[in-house]
């Protein structure tokens, strides 16, 4: 993917939701996360640290919001305007939300990059080219989900004292100061799955690729797969809950179907569908 190619074919890589541009993609990687199953246990987040060479930055830098948690589990307390109440105690527990890059099809981060370091792949991924990134941080500024993470320092200098460095995954790089990074949907695993399929002369099957977060999830709340494969588990969940790509508002046959996308109204066309949390009362 050369820069020249990107600039010449800009409109191919810069899609808007209205194009429905994903229809001619090779794959369309997506997720469905069931908040009825998610317990907020955080295993996904730590698995992501293990898989993706995420540095630990320490207390001070974490407090400045510089933590590199590509996948963070947010916790909200119930409130009256979200169906909760003002009782003395937190009777309905907490609301957990695993948030990773939503791999938006109309990603607000992409058009603002002055060097096209972030662009859309024909896999439907919002990719980040580390070598091209100059650290303007415009993308991070423009992400409504706050899911882009900037290397303010050379974290690797302190994050992996020997022999911790031996754990680093050689399938992807360790990023240095001045570079933006974020969840890639475990692109290195996608690569492995695609290569294996090609070598065996077949299509990529559902289940060939699983992200680190989805694999470790004790409740299998996270489902990952290819939306272009209509028989994939993730396609079926999106279809069952009547969530469609290329829309900023879903018109459902039954308003009680649980699927929704976070901040969908911003017209970002995210590739992650959440299924609503369930409470007795």
């Amino acid at each position: 993917m050369s820069l020249k190619n990107i600039l010449e074919n800009w409109s191919d890589y810069r899609r808007t939701a209205e194009d429905g541009g994903h229809h001619d993609y090779e794959h369309m990687w997506a997720m469905a996360i069931d908040l009825n199953k998610c317990t907020g246990c955080n295993a996904c987040s730590v698995a992501c640290y293990a898989e993706n060479n995420l540095p630990t930055v320490g207390k001070k830098r974490m407090m400045k919001g510089q933590g590199m948690h590509w996948l963070r589990v947010e916790r909200y307390w119930d409130e009256p305007d979200m169906g909760g109440d003002e009782k003395e105690y937190q009777e309905r527990g907490g609301s957990f939300l695993p948030m990773m890059c939503q791999q938006c099809n109309a990603a607000p981060c992409e058009p603002v990059c002055p060097v096209a370091a972030t662009y859309h792949t024909p896999d439907g991924l919002n990719a980040q080219v580390y070598n091209r990134c100059i650290g303007s941080r415009y993308c991070s500024n423009n992400c409504p989900y706050r899911l882009r993470y900037f290397n303010f320092y050379s974290y690797y200098e302190e994050s992996w004292p020997e022999p911790l460095n031996m754990q680093l995954n050689p399938d992807l790089s360790v990023r240095d100061k001045g570079v933006m990074e974020k969840c890639t949907f475990c692109v290195q695993r996608i690569r492995v799955g695609k290569d294996a399929a090609r070598r065996e002369g077949r299509e990529v099957h559902d289940g060939d690729v699983i992200t680190a977060c989805a694999q470790t999830c004790p409740t299998e709340a996270i489902v990952f797969g290819d939306m272009m494969d209509k028989s994939s588990k993730v396609s079926k969940i999106w279809a069952a809950h009547e969530v469609e790509l290329g829309k900023h508002e879903q018109h459902k046959s039954d308003p009680d179907l649980r699927g929704y996308r976070v901040l969908e109204g911003l017209n970002t066309d995210p590739c992650v569908t959440y299924l609503e949390r369930v409470r007795e009362a």
Binding site: L35, E74, R75, Y76, W77, D78, E79, D81, M82, G83, R92, S95, F96, L97, D256, R258, Y260, V262, L263, Y274, E276, R277, V278, R279, E280, A281
Partner: peptide, 15 residues
């Protein structure tokens, strides 16, 4: 924020 300030981040339905 620990609150969703009315936005549908975690949406909840009745059992």
């Amino acid at each position: 924020s620990e609150r969703q300030v009315g936005r549908r981040l975690v949406s909840t339905v009745a059992a």
